[in-house]
């Protein structure tokens, strides 16, 4: 099993719901607290497991604006794990989630250097490395209903742009989405095999043929008819007698 998020860039509107709901869930959860520095001062900064960024693709007027959420991709070959000197970073065999054991972490930050995606965040007050846990403290919690046993960000997302499931199960929603909607991994060049995938923009276009535009049953044929003209107005009747 390899659990993962599949993020549909086709519908993500960049609302940041996933960002804040993630923070909200996790700060009081097993990964918390998630420090905020200068929360009311200059340059407020804090630990977040998920960020939404925006990219402008192309030049005016052919500009696409892409909202791009990014959290730990739970790589199948996670470069962040083997480099960890303490074993605090590990990948779970049972479901492929990459986690950090905060009690073992020495805060050397080496794993963050080893992650090409910038998915790890050092917590400045607890001084250990943190990252997306795929909400491991939700998805197996049997106190929660089935519906709730999904990552916080997935449940929050108003556009349903975040799918969650097992990408090793070809019948799962995520596998189908990857297969059918052209799901792709980030920076495939490093062979990290990110479990999280992204679905590209898809465009719907309309083509209208000429004969569709001006049809014979056009209402102008009805309304365009002018009323019968004044009977007394001049007509051929006045001058010709065949």
């Amino acid at each position: 099993m390899q659990l993962a998020l599949v993020i549909d860039l086709n519908v993500c509107v960049g609302c940041h719901a996933c960002v804040i709901n993630c923070k909200e869930w996790n700060t009081s959860g097993t990964a918390g607290p998630m420090t905020d520095l200068n929360p009311y001062g200059k340059d407020p900064t804090g630990t977040f497991f998920n960020r939404v960024q925006t990219f402008e693709v192309g030049t005016f007027p052919d500009t696409e604006v892409v909202h791009f959420p990014k959290s730990c991709l739970h790589c199948e070959e996670p470069p962040c794990v083997p480099v960890c000197p303490t074993g605090a970073s590990y990948k779970r065999v049972e479901d492929g989630i990459v986690l950090v054991n905060y009690d073992q972490c020495i805060g050397c930050k080496y794993c963050s250097w080893a992650c090409p995606y910038g998915a790890r965040e050092f917590d400045e007050t607890q001084r250990v490395m943190k990252k997306c846990t795929l909400c491991v403290d939700r998805i197996y919690d049997t106190h929660l209903t089935e519906e709730e046993r999904r990552p916080a960000c997935v449940r929050a997302c108003p556009t349903g742009a975040r799918l969650f499931g097992d990408i090793h199960d070809p019948a799962s929603e995520v596998s189908i989405a990857i297969r059918e909607s052209g799901g792709y991994p980030l920076m495939p060049e490093w062979g990290t095999q990110p479990a999280n995938h992204y679905l590209p923009r898809r465009k719907t276009r309309l083509r209208i043929r000429k004969d569709e535009l001006d049809r014979a049953d056009n209402p102008l044929k009805i309304d365009g008819q002018l009323p019968t003209p004044d009977r007394t107005a001049p007509s051929l009747d006045d001058i010709a007698s065949w």
């Binding site: 700060t27 009081s28 918390g32 607290p33 998630m34 420090t35 905020d36 520095l37 200068n38 929360p39 009311y40 001062g41 007050t125 607890q126």
Partner: peptide, 13 residues
Amino acid sequence: RKSVWNYFAGGKK
């Protein structure tokens, strides 16, 4: 206003 905030509901941690 706090300058560092580790919010954890219920006061744990």
